[in-house]
Design a protein around this nucleic acid. Structure first.
Lengths: 340, 340
DNA sequence: CTGAAAGCGCTAACAT
DNA sequence: ATGTTAGCGCTTTCAG
């Protein structure tokens, strides 16, 4: 390996001091135009690349942010990554990606690791198990800005970019009721995840108003198994059971696919026997059999906005992230699965 | 901000030298068991977190790898990320993610940036525009291991983890022919991307054998517009044109969706009027209207394997990545879109 | 406008 | 088994 060229080499070559080189490269006002040009020319000539870690060590700033996601295969999160990247890229920041796999313990370990100075800020959608903000607190105490997007932790003060979950739950219920459902249910993936709780609450409230809350029937079903097969069986039992619903709203994309699979397998007709509505950003929704009605979140936008706010928190010192609470509404797309 | 505690603080507290602390933390054999325990205890007590950049600077090793992807919204890439993460996580490595957006210039800039010492290795699926390996060469000259997965650059010597593309192209053609197609076409997204070229070649060769290559008809169509609407129009013109095919194979997921959309819009029946087969890892394939036949790549596996090889290259010095050329076969799933 | 020097936090020779 | 010391490459006072 040939010797890596660094500031010192540049200095020697140009007969200048390292300080001058450093300043010139950072375009400091205290360096003359000519020297700057000389330095830059030599730097490109020698293909000089600054060592980011030396710089980070000295400046206590890494130009790196972390994204922590429950998973990456839900299309929502892919789009969010895209949105985040689009702004990180513009700011010249690097993006580390971590997956919690919906596990609180993993999420906690990841967040704790963010305390090392490796990153300047964190964007996170919390796991469905997370019911304790202690790890977030620790981060904040180290002055590392943190922004929640979509899945925010309720009782923790920091910037949040979310959708109108309660309202969407209500919209979902109203839509199904309008389409003739008398016993719709909401399929939740967690009993502590705010997005699920709020959507479920909006859903229930609207059912209540419509007089469709029944004594001995649950209108919210928890699909919390981590094994997909178990969840599939649960869904199968639900839609073929004696007290089967005539409509379902799935809180996440994955559940919608499982409902479709189960319906196909057990010859349950959508929308005739069962109306299906999903919180989902699935691009294939319009070409499913039948086309799937969705409540679609602006995932890219959510990620982008969250990132923009995070950078405000990183760049302006003493900027108060607590003030930011952004709601970007989702949109209902009516398709055949709820009967047009 | 309270003073960040570091090795020096620990040393002072324990009345030991910084060297001893450092060695103890790295579990060196030259430190006694008791001191190690004392150090570890104090470290957890004071919530000491080592500064990764100081360590990286000194050791010239970042414990970080980069993934460079053309995009993140194709399900294939999400799954690949998942596979890569699963091994990075186990190895205690961090993963930086970058998107080339299918642009050669962006990819080049990203790769050049990897020369800074920020990362220990690169996993990449190349953009559809990439037809020059100069940037890869530069990386390799700096001794940064690079592993291609799925989309590899043909004439560049390094480890590659790919699928049996030529064969799959052939399988695709044979499948359509068996199902009665006499004029199937292959929809490519690039005229230089090896996966496209090989799949197209396998496709054409099999058509040739079957005597289905026609003089003045193209069996390979290039959909290289970056604007989705343009691509959509191109597809629409193709399948409604005078010389319309009776079967299509799409080289990527996105094109399959557009074909479906176009068919729905123009009342072209799948599979009666047009048989559709897609290279795709779409989870919704079985529930599309009609269920989509796919050639499905083991995306997670591909990512995982590529990462494992990369770590061999990173960990064992002088390990020759050139030797690794792994082919993981894809699988044909016959569904209704090609007529069962 | 330029330079000398200290030091970010950690590691690895090289002592002891 | 523990300690001393010299950097890794860069930035930032502070002096000139």
């Amino acid at each position: 390996m040939q010797k890596k060229i660094n500031i010192k080499t540049l200095a020697a070559e140009l007969k200048l001091s390292v300080a001058t080189i450093s300043k010139a490269l950072r375009d400091s006002h205290e360096i003359s135009k000519e020297t700057k040009e000389r330095v830059l020319a030599k730097a490109t000539l020698l293909k000089y690349t600054p060592n980011p870690y030396a710089s980070s060590l000295r400046r206590k700033k890494s130009n790196t942010i972390a994204i922590i996601l429950p998973e990456v295969s839900d299309h929502f999160f892919s789009l969010a990554i895209d949105g985040i990247q689009s702004v990180a890229e513009k700011k010249g920041y690097h993006v580390l990606i971590y997956l919690s796999h919906e596990k609180y313990t993993i999420e906690k370990a990841l967040i704790d690791d963010c305390n090392s100075g490796r990153i300047d800020g964190v964007l996170i959608s919390i796991s469905r198990e997370t019911d304790d903000p202690a790890h977030f607190k620790k981060l904040q105490e180290e002055n590392i800005p943190i922004v929640f997007f979509d899945r925010a932790f309720e009782n923790f003060k920091t910037a949040k970019v979310v959708t109108n979950d309660y309202e969407c739950g209500s919209i979902a219920a109203r839509h199904l009721i309008e389409k003739g459902c008398t016993h719709p249910v909401f399929l939740s993936i967690s009993n502590c995840l705010p997005i699920c709780i709020k959507r479920a609450e909006g859903f229930k409230a609207t059912l209540q108003e419509a007089g469709l809350m029944h004594e001995n029937r649950n209108s919210v079903i928890f699909c919390t198994d981590s094994n997909p097969q178990d969840t599939f069986n649960q869904i199968k039992d639900l839609i073929t059971g004696s007290d089967k619903p005539d409509g379902v709203v799935t809180s996440v994309e994955r559940l919608a696919m499982q409902v479709y699979m189960a319906c196909h397998e057990y010859k349950i007709r959508i929308p005739e026997d069962l109306k299906v509505l999903a919180f989902s950003t699935l691009e294939t929704a319009p070409i499913l059999n039948p086309p799937l009605s969705t409540i679609t979140q602006p995932a890219f936008e959510l990620g982008k906005t969250a990132a923009e706010i995070l950078f405000k928190g990183i760049e302006k010192k003493n900027y108060n992230l607590t003030d930011e609470f952004i709601v970007i509404p989702a949109t209902l797309f009516e398709r055949a699965s709820t009967g047009y």
